[in-house]
Design a protein around this nucleic acid. Structure first.
Lengths: 342, 342
DNA sequence: CTGTTAGCGCGTTCAC
DNA sequence: GTGAACGCGCTAACAG
């Protein structure tokens, strides 16, 4: 069965091809009567315009793309929801696209930019460390909403937008909080390579340094490389190994809430209490932290604010109401039940 | 700046347009030397073929689409991962597409079918209750992997594929387990309307009926309609209300693990112990259930098997090695720490 | 092996 | 207001 096209509709309505096109696109120059009739026939026939063909010709598509790297990150779904709302309000269409871990998000963006008629791009969860040369290939405004990557090391000019949290600072904040409680044997659960783990580790070290305290290197535990670095399972396994090693530990700081929850499981399984025997702190502020037992002490990233600012800034830049800029959001130390005095 | 096209590449290489196309598509009939040169120029120029134009002409695209309804469902990400692996192994491209709650997944599929050259479609999380007439519009094989919707009530012919778990049966299983522990005051946390909640409630009733026990209607608690029906927050609020009502309860069965975790938080906040004072059981078998404290008793859906079978069946149907069929997978009652004798 | 040509389905000029 | 013709960028069929 042949695909039904705009031509068939035109024939069936006894009108020209372009009239159908006008009906389809809410073009003003069309007789309401003929327009209504065309839409009826379209309804009956179940005709669906071919998007590929449309994208090929269309000049005015208001469309922005969100490229998400890391579908497993629980923070993203709420961010996406907010971005969706905000774009709809501005009458933009949204293309949501997942980027595989090994894919280059810029390449995907470049491809999408050609395929659809993008007006702007949001990068969620990728790394803002692409060569400027490559970034410059993007012809529409874009913004990196890189929860987890501090920009202070970046040398990008202000010509590119970026919204982030100062990981090093926030990480130091929660470490200092643990130190303030009297903890000294604070195990750090982090990833070995990778900018996020790196920055958060730096914050950890900074907090110790600021108090003139030495960091015990063998309390820095790296998650397993061969599986998702930020999964509960990885946190569990890493902390299990730690506890079995009989190293003395009074607190555990995992650089993500999921790792921290895995850590909790390992601690509980070892027959220890949280926080009486061992305090556990996370980082991210995922919803589960409020529901877990005990409730998780963590650094809460202002996800909603970040999402809102991200999309608004992008829309403003698109509309040339605003210049690209780089913004750092403060995060919040949320003390709950999983941490206590040493 | 004008978009760079295949024509420009051809000119720059001093070859014909179709030769470039051949290089692009790994066509065998091409001189390796010219081919290499073309690819080099493409690399230099940063040329990216326009997908819309390709889709318009291409006839042989091996592409299958996965339409996901309900991004928040924690079970989906692992299913998607498996489906990705399996499709790649068969050298199919994958289009992942999220469907909004209010969108009609069939409409989206229809549109996508025109836009890309789909060979098959997987529906994840939608409802298999579309009129046959509409389903028949889909011209490529598709399969509903409807975790959560029992098919026994469906009157669809075998011409459509569907993979599911028998919700009623499994729900009865876990209810019977609680009854077997001696519980009689078992609160049910479910959604008021909606086929999933409906079927699971039927299972709950069935289990009581089988023992000749009456169901106490006021122990059936409906989640709030105005927010995500299967969120922790909704479970928390619903159970909080329940507990404040002073109705006697010895066990709570929530029809999803997330609801159950919210329920646990409410129970704990009320100063009760799990399972000593109140047992809590969930449904789904999400990973968090193993990490939560206490570990959650639940019905574990065989997500991996379902995902594998789903994609394999689809590929088989596409290749005409197999007829469309409807399969029911058994789920497993996993008893963990959150439930105990009455 | 390679270049030329004819559309894919639609939006966008133009005339009318 | 409307229709015919053109071409978006590319692939496929055909010649060479």
């Amino acid at each position: 069965m042949a695909e039904i096209t705009i031509k068939d509709i035109a024939k069936q309505c006894g009108v020209g091809i372009s009239t159908v096109s006008r009906a389809l696109n809410n073009h003003p120059d069309i007789n309401p009567a003929t327009r209504k009739k065309i839409l009826e026939v379209i309804e009956e026939t179940g005709f669906i315009p071919n998007n590929s063909a449309r994208n090929l010709k269309r000049t005015d598509a208001k469309c922005i793309a969100v490229l998400v790297k890391g579908i497993t990150n629980p923070l993203f779904s709420s961010m996406i929801k907010i971005i969706e709302e905000e774009t709809q309000r501005s009458r933009y269409a949204l293309v949501l696209r997942h980027v595989e871990e090994q894919e280059d998000e810029i390449d995907v963006a470049l491809e999408l930019e050609k395929e659809k008629r993008l007006r702007g791009i949001v990068f969620l969860g990728g790394l803002f460390e692409h060569p400027e040369e490559k970034l410059r290939k993007l012809k529409v405004p874009f913004i990196f909403s890189t929860i987890g990557v501090n920009i202070s090391d970046q040398f990008h000019k202000v010509e590119f937008s970026n919204i982030a949290v100062d990981d090093r600072l926030e990480s130091a904040k929660i470490t200092e909080y643990l130190l303030g409680l009297g903890h000294r044997k604070i195990a750090l659960i982090t990833e070995k390579n990778g900018p996020i783990g790196g920055l958060r580790m730096e914050g950890y070290r900074q907090a110790f340094a600021q108090r003139g305290l030495p960091v015990e290197e063998d309390l820095i535990c790296y998650v397993q490389e061969d599986m998702d670095h930020y999964s509960m399972e990885n946190g569990y396994l890493t902390v299990k190994t730690l506890l079995e090693s009989e190293r003395e530990v009074t607190a555990i700081y995992a650089v993500s809430d999921l790792l921290a929850i895995g850590a909790c499981r390992a601690v509980l399984e070892a027959g220890k209490r949280i926080p009486e025997d061992i305090s556990v702190a996370g980082y991210d502020g995922i919803e589960m932290g409020e529901y877990y037992n005990p409730k998780l002490t963590t650094i809460k990233q202002p996800v909603e604010e970040i999402a809102k600012k991200t999309i608004r800034l992008l829309l403003d830049v698109i509309a040339e109401r605003e210049e690209p800029q780089q913004i750092v959001f403060p995060a919040e130390l949320v003390v709950r039940e999983s941490t206590g005095p040493c």
